[in-house]
Simulated scan of single mutants.
Amino acid sequence: MKHIPRKRFGQHFLTDSGIIDAIVRAIDPKPGQPVVEIGPGLAALTQPLAERLGRLTVIELDRDLAAKLRSHPQLEVIESDVLKVDFLKVAQSLGAGKIRVTGNLPYNISSPILFHLLPYAEHIQDQHFMLQKEVIDRMVAAPSTSDYGRLSVTLQWRYAMENILAVPPEAFDPPPRVDSAVVRMLPRSDFAPLNATHLSELVQVAFSQRRKLLRHTLGRWLTERGFSGNFDVQRRAEEVPVQEYVSLAEATSTPI
């Protein structure tokens, strides 16, 4: 398909056949599996997925691309902003208990997409996304590292994640100004069932002033909420493991 990339949609189309093959092997699609692709674009990844699955659901915001994709006999096209898509309804429409989700996410809204998917994790088998490498480094970061932050804690609470593939700028047309990578995200079965919004707020407060001790930020937040439990605020936010943040969120909110 001929198409001029649109900056407002953050469009960078994957063209490297070797990278495409590697992503498909990582996803390992099987015939009949309910797979949803976000941002199929020019169908570089879409076509090999559809060939292996037999049927594929795609979510595309660009009206021109969506119209072209509808001519593909193996595709079910949802023309929408992915941030407005109810993935539970998508799973139900596919008659699936759980769906698999993949895609080359628009880098300008990748974090909002990840947070939008968070409440649907129980209905998702796995997620494979191409993202800016810097974002994936933050997603999988360990405590006491410079990349460890709100994104690390909030996502690691709910997913086991792994950076599985490096993707250079020249693999795209037009090439982005950053390195990319592919992340595998597996929803955890052993997660603590708490309010994701509350956890996100707690962690955002904690990391609001990374260089300061937590007593200046999270300590005050806890005091305002009457917290009287045991939590060491004589540390910096990046020194606190994910499980401690989760336990603190459990202690300061009503479980869902």
Rank of each mutant, 00 (worst) to 15 (best):
G226M: 10
K30I: 04
S80A: 15
V203H: 10
P40Q: 05
P176E: 09
I78G: 04
L94Q: 07
T102P: 00
A171P: 07
I99Y: 07
L118Q: 01
V178N: 00
F207L: 13
Q243M: 15
D62K: 08
I4V: 12
L165S: 09
P5L: 14
L45Q: 07
K133E: 07
S228M: 11
P175Q: 04
V205M: 13
I136Q: 06
N195L: 13
T57S: 08
L131M: 02
V90L: 12
Y245R: 10
E239D: 11
I4E: 12
Q33K: 07
I23Y: 11
M1T: 14
M161S: 08
A166G: 05
R236I: 01
V90W: 13
V135F: 13
T57P: 10
A121R: 08
P106M: 02
P34I: 04
D173W: 14
F129Y: 13
P31L: 01
P193G: 00
E122Q: 06
A196S: 09
G18C: 04
L65F: 11
V153Y: 15
S247V: 12
P176A: 09
D137W: 07
G219L: 14
K84S: 13
G41I: 10
L218T: 15
L114E: 00
F231A: 06
P29F: 03
S189V: 09
L49E: 00
V167I: 09
G103E: 01
P48R: 02
V85I: 05
I19H: 05
K68C: 03
L213I: 13
V82Q: 06
S228V: 08
E122D: 02
P175I: 02
P119S: 04
M185K: 00
H216T: 13
V178R: 07
A237G: 14
K133A: 09
S152C: 12
A251W: 07
Y107A: 01
M139G: 00
Q127I: 03
K30N: 05
F9L: 10
E76H: 12
H198F: 14
F9G: 08
P175K: 08
Y159I: 00
R215W: 15
L218A: 15
L118R: 01
S228F: 07
K2I: 14
G149I: 08
N230Q: 09
V167Y: 12
R158F: 04
G39D: 06
V85R: 03
T102S: 02
T154Q: 05
D190H: 04
